[in-house]
Design a protein around this nucleic acid. Sequence first.
DNA 1: CCGTATCCCCCGCGATACTG
DNA 2: CAGTATCGCGGGGGATACGG
Lengths: 135, 135
Amino acid sequence: MVEPLDPEMFDPVCPSSALPVQIGDKWTAMVVLCLEAGPRRFTELKTPLRGVTPKVLTQTLRAMERDGLVTRTAYDENPPRVEYELTPLGRSLLDLVAAARAWSREHLPALLEARAAHDSSPHASRLKRSPDSRA
Amino acid sequence: MVEPLDPEMFDPVCPSSALPVQIGDKWTAMVVLCLEAGPRRFTELKTPLRGVTPKVLTQTLRAMERDGLVTRTAYDENPPRVEYELTPLGRSLLDLVAAARAWSREHLPALLEARAAHDSSPHASRLKRSPDSRA
DNA sequence: CCGTATCCCCCGCGATACTG
DNA sequence: CAGTATCGCGGGGGATACGG
């Protein structure tokens, strides 16, 4: 058994909407991260992915299963238990997700700053005078 | 002056729709790639980005400008000339784009194969029998 | 050449409610 | 617990046409 997921592993304040990198669908990258340490149950995934509805999480997981990124294992028990686990192919995305997060950590502030500056000022478009042939 | 862009630098056959990585908007990553070697004009960008309408390309470039990824320089000439160029921040995306392309080269075939296999067969969901306590 | 201006469609995503 | 069923919207993206 692995450690429980941190319910706050995804900062809701973080403007990931501004993040110019997306892996698969909206929640795919986060699911990959949640599954990094080992298999997880449906409800277990829902916790850190605050706000995701069961419908959408199911859609995401089904799509990932279809693409060979995760396996779905249903245990014949009561109450029902279903576990999702990254395949090797799914694990191969971890590097990419890490790279995206590294970029964000390093450059997202600058991007956000540029955006704020641009929004709060009359966009001074650059104009270059072409080389004038006259003296 | 830099070399002209290869009109076929983006393979239309490549199912990039299946590619689970997206940088910014739909065309952002491709624009970044087009600007790698140096400044480019609007029409110059449109060529390899086959199918993009001027409206959408403008939207993309404006968004990138807002985020500090590109600079737009208009030359006071006739006919008009406008050049777009990557900022250092925009250049910082090159690594990420390269990483995404590397992942695709290495793993996209497997993903596509998994998808095809899944689509053309009754999805045999895994079922594990729970440890039976009876003898 | 370098864009704008409209119109419109699709669908990803969410809200809400219900079931084996 | 682990989903399914419905409904609906918002907006990214494309088609088409026009302007400085």
